[in-house]
Each structure stands twice: as structure tokens, then as C-alpha cells.
Amino acid sequence: MTAADVIVPEQSDPPTGRPERPMAARNWRIGITAAIIIAAMWSWTGLDASFQDVLDAPGKGWNIVKQMWPPDFKTVVDRGAVGKIFESLYVAWIGTMIGAIISFPLSFFGASNVAPAALRVPIRLLFNAIRAVPELIVAMLLLTVTGLGPWAGALAIGLHSVGTLGKLSTEVIETSDEGPLEAISAAGGTFIEKMRWGMVPQVLPTVIGYWLFRFEINVRASAVLGLIGAGGIGGELVSQLNFRNFPQVGAVLLMVIAMVLIIDTISGFARRRIIAGSGRKIDDDDHNASTEALAGLLLGDSIMRPNKPND
């Protein structure tokens, strides 16, 4: 190899100033922004509200907030609001249990590394179909059929949880490590033994974390279910609102907020403890992972992770 063989790149002037922005990206940006603005304006026309209404609304809202203060805890507690708070909690808990107990075994048969397609496809369809129906609608149908009461609410929440938890558990099972399963097969283990000793210990911490998350979401859902007569604190809120007893409404609202925040705190602690295991310090990664999971669980879908390099 001589010096003449070495290809010397053609010398060009170093770029001066700012490089030009790529046109295509810019056009896309303008196009999407315009589309969003047009969609928003079209939506505005359907709301049947004037600009004055928008300006008035915060004032009207504030007016009600003012009337809620000071909250009248005495009346609502006398009407049994504390018991109704607990009823909401029971509804959420039983709903979560129903969801967990039914979805966990089913999710094995929905996973591509466990079940054949003939079994997998119908189970996945079932999960997706359940997920698509809002739990409030399920509750409404069940109430019509089984009659009013918290049990119908728990059933509705449980049914919906089967769909969301099933989908998430399936994904956890699919991303599990094959190694332990292979080792058990090599040692002559049966299918059941493979699942019990190779799969369940791997996936259980994550899956229980999802159950706890679902419980947090179900607490909110059960507070809402009272709006349509499925028991719990929501019913109390509606009756106070309908009579416009705002101090009582304020008290009930504060109780709902306290319930949700307390459950979130306890459940968040338990979740991090389960995922971190004993003896390890809980670090920032655990917190971030839990946020991603939260986003996913609101919809019962696994969250996209934009910052993860391996996706």
C-alpha cells in the first residue's frame, strides 16, 4: 500500500453559522400542530358554550368551594359516612381479589412461551374484550340484573380487573427467563412443576406489584361506583350534592381524598418493598419503574418506555 492509495477526503469549507433545519421535520411539526388546533376548535363548537362561560366557570367553581368551608363532618359521620368509606374499601379489595384470582391462572394460558396458539388467542381476546368495556357500564348492567348493592360493584370491578391484570400478567410471563424452566425439564420435571417452581417465583413479585396498583385504581373506581347506586361513599356524595348541602359535600370529599391518599401510600410502600426485596435500599429506579407501571395500569396496557435503550 502506497501513500497514493490512501483516499484523501475532499476538503470542503467548514460549515459556517447554523446548519439548516431539516425541512421534512419542520413540515410535519407545522402540520401536526395545525391539525391539533383545528381539532380543538372543532371540539369547542360542539360544547355549546360561549367565551364568557369559560371566564365565569372558575368563579362558579370557587363559589362552591367557598360554600364547602368549613366542612361539616358531624352530619355526614352521623349518617354513617365512615362505614361507607370502609364499604368502598371492601368493594375495591374484593374486586381486586376476584381479578387477581381469576386472571393469574388464565394469564399462563395467554402467554406465548407457555400455551399453544389455540389456547392463547381466545384468552387474549377475552382479556382485550373485557378491558374495552368501562367498569361503570359493567356495574350498570349488573345492577340492572342483580339489583343494587356493593356486591354488584365488587363484581363489576373484579370483572374489569380480570382484563387489565390478565393482560399485564401475560406480558410479565412472556418476558420471564427460560433458564429455570429448562433446568426443571432437564431434571425431569412435569409441566405443573415447571410452572410452580420455575415460573411462579420469577413472575410473582412483579405480578403482586400489579395487583396492588390495581387495588389503588379500584379504590378510586369504587368511590365512583356509588354514583350509580353500587354502594360506598360515592352514593353519600351524590345525595349531599343533589341537596346542595355543600358543607357536607366538603366533608365527604375530604374523606375520599384522605382514603385515596392513605391507600396509595400504604400500597406504594408495600409495592416497593416487594419489588426491592428485603435488605435492599429502595432507589430512584424503583420509583421510576412504578410510575411507568402506573401509566400502564390506568389503561391496563404496558407502558411504552421512551428512555429505555433496549426497546
Partner: peptide, 8 residues
């Protein structure tokens, strides 16, 4: 909880 909400 199941008893409380009338589980059947």
C-alpha cells in the same frame, strides 16, 4: 370484606 358487602 366479602361478608360486609354481601358476597354470594
Amino acid at each position: 370484606a366479602a361478608r360486609q358487602i354481601g358476597f354470594r
